[in-house]
Amino acid sequence: MFDDLRDLYQEVIFDHNRNPRNFRVMENADRQVEGFNPLCGDRLTLYLKMDGDRIADASFQGSGCAISTASVSLMTEIVKGKTEQEAEDLFTKFHEMTTGKDENFNLEAVGKLAVLAGVREYPARVKCATLAWHTLDAALKNEQKSISTE
């Protein structure tokens, strides 16, 4: 029935929505930032444990749509062990992918985050996918406050 939506709602996304990874409060987190999308009310808290400039652990709490939950769940998995610079580079690529300005974007550059490429066809949903990354960006810049997509 929802054939047109296969690119947007891939099975991996349903899976992460049903069983989000790293979905927990982190005791002794070094960074903790809240992300908020006022348009849809999505809200998440991102926790990071740092080891020098490396992300030793990442987790989150909050509630959002399937796209935003899958996006933050995948993000916490992929950034673990990365340096701050590597994570920021990934954010840049992710942003390029979801806004869809580059038609020849190489999906391999973002690894398993490629499952979120479908949002570029749905402008109303791009922010759902990028909220997690904007929140991470704020956490890495050590902005201990809440950020908003608006």
């Binding site: 939506l5 509630s63 749509c65 109303a124």
Partner: peptide, 19 residues
């Protein structure tokens, strides 16, 4: 989430509001 409901229904030609 209501946004997922909205996108899914839109693919069936149904316009509702989510928010």
């Amino acid at each position: 989430h209501p946004h997922d409901i909205g996108t899914m229904l839109d693919s069936l030609g149904i316009a509702i509001r989510a928010g």
